[in-house]
Design a protein around this nucleic acid. Structure first.
Lengths: 120, 120
DNA sequence: TCCTTAATTAAGGAGTCACTTACATGACCG
DNA sequence: CGGTCATGTAAGTGACTCCTTAATTAAGGA
């Protein structure tokens, strides 16, 4: 999918260990592409492409100073990720409380499938 | 990459809107594959494959009851995601405090690249 | 002006991903 | 036992990902 929603783009950007390592490095402060590339056994263009993915996801910002491109971490997308994840962890807890309530009320467990509601 | 680390696998699993929708649905309680598939304009095998990805990432668990496969949400991988994300949000805050300290101390901003340290 | 440094763009290849249709498995039900 | 329901497996396809090398842009210094 070339034209993805923001959340998918950010998750996909974070799904690569090289890109996560770049972000970890960047968390210590803005640096140039050369300094980012140094620890990796990978060509510069490869790093450039990773940076483009990170930029497209809004996870970094690039500013041009003479021939150097300074990359700076942006955390807003991480907030969105955290929000989605927390929301789903909470849903589960609520569900679990609900299940406990029902068990306490003596109804049968909702884990049993109700197949007749299918296929409509 | 066929043999990925856990974090990459989970992020990749979450990078698809269909799979996130499945998890959202599953947050309301365990259900069968048929019920999961119902809202999607997509073939059953496609859903099966998404479920396999989610299972490989540890985000769901499948139990067999007669001819029904009941899928249950597992939140442990979400905890790992949240941990990584929070760690990086915090790093940034610390970095920012550091930057402010330096600015207050009158040194020049560390945003300026130091290219001579490159290329060793 | 020429060379070096910093980085990007271009083009291509191997592998993976997200689907599809067709077929297989396996449980229940008349 | 045969049919149907719930799901999975197989095989194929187009698009995308991650990397490569080669060429390009663009700034600064001798």
């Amino acid at each position: 999918m070339t034209d993805r929603d923001l959340l998918s783009t950010v998750f996909a950007a974070l799904a690569d260990p090289t890109r996560r390592a770049i972000l970890t490095h960047l968390a210590q402060g803005p640096t140039t592409v050369g300094q980012i590339a140094e620890p990796f056994a990978m060509s510069r263009p490869a790093i450039s492409q990773h940076l483009r993915v990170l930029e497209a996801a809004g996870l970094i910002e690039r500013t041009v100073t003479a021939q150097w491109r300074t990359c700076t971490l942006r955390t807003e997308p991480l907030d969105e990720i955290a929000s989605w994840v927390d929301r789903h962890r909470r849903y589960w807890d609520e569900r679990f409380d609900l299940l406990e309530d029902r068990l306490r009320a003596g109804r049968d467990a909702p884990t049993t499938p109700r197949p007749q509601e299918e296929n409509r």
